[in-house]
């Protein structure tokens, strides 16, 4: 209740002080997703948690700006950035050529490969033949969607979901034969959980830059070149100061930054 009133009040405040924000970056509004564990999810009390969220907080501290996080569903996450609902997207978004046509990106802040998962005992192999007549679940408008549409559209049936969580729900329900997603997100968000115990990885790691880009970065409107610079410096800053390593260790037992 209190939080709600506060949210409305602050919305009104932003409305009044809207003009002041654009110039000096005292406040940076960050768009996040919230349905992509372990990178971004919400707790029972509605709090945002996860790797992306911790990185956001660390970067804002490094840049010495105030940050407010805005939750946005994945489908609308770039349109909302362009509509200036927030100033940057920190939501595990891969840096791809196609997205670069619409938005600018910071340097990468992590890079992990994509992978298929299948139900244990299903024996499905990853090949044009193996995927024939199989249903693959992906999150809509992700690099995984691009990849599966580009490579397997002619043999497999593709089911596109608004969130990764929904794809997991349908995997448990048996509505999809395969999942294609980020290997780390799928491992921690699904395979290692109780519901995902019947599922396993299959096939190679996918990193083809044509589909998957060159790692995950922060998306920013093209005209805000100063903000891109600020984020690049901040990423380098938390890398050298060890803040990044600390957050990395909190979530993973390997280096997610990649090489």
């Amino acid at each position: 209740m209190k939080r709600l009133t506060l949210a409305i009040l602050s919305a009104a405040l932003v409305l009044v002080s809207g003009a002041a924000i654009a110039k000096e970056w005292k406040i940076v509004r960050i768009g996040v997703e919230g349905a992509y564990p372990p990178f971004s999810s919400v707790t029972t009390s509605g709090e945002l948690v996860g790797f992306d969220i911790d990185i956001t907080k660390a970067l804002c501290k490094e840049m010495q700006v105030k940050c407010s996080m805005v939750q946005q569903d994945w489908d609308g996450i770039i349109p909302a950035l362009l509509a200036r609902k927030y100033d940057a997207i920190i939501a595990s978004m891969s840096i791809t050529e196609k997205r670069k046509k619409k938005v600018a990106f910071s340097d990468k802040y992590y890079n992990t490969p994509a992978k298929f998962a299948r139900k244990k005992g299903s024996g499905i192999e990853i090949s044009k033949e193996g995927l024939k007549g199989k249903t693959v679940g992906v999150q809509r408008a992700t690099t995984h969607d691009e990849f599966i549409t580009g490579e397997f559209d002619d043999t497999a049936t593709i089911k596109r979901y608004g969130t990764q969580d929904e794809a997991y729900l349908d995997a448990v329900a048996g509505r999809v034969d395969l999942l294609l997603a980020d290997s780390v997100a799928m491992d921690d968000g699904f395979l290692k959980t109780d519901k995902g115990k019947d599922w396993e990885f299959v096939g190679p790691d996918y990193t083809d830059p044509k589909y998957f880009g060159i790692g995950v970065g922060i998306a920013i409107r093209k005209q805000d070149t100063d903000l891109v610079e600020m984020f690049n410096k901040a990423i380098a800053g938390i890398r050298t100061k060890g803040t990044y390593a600390k957050i990395n260790a909190k979530y993973f037992d390997f280096d997610v930054y990649g090489d």
């Binding site: 489908d75 609308g76 770039i78 349109p79 619409k102 809509r140 408008a141 596109r160």
Partner: peptide, 21 residues
Amino acid sequence: IITIVDLFGAARIVNSRYFVP
């Protein structure tokens, strides 16, 4: 909303591919 590519589903796909809501 539930993965069916009906008229609205088609619009969602076009939106998410080209960012033209």
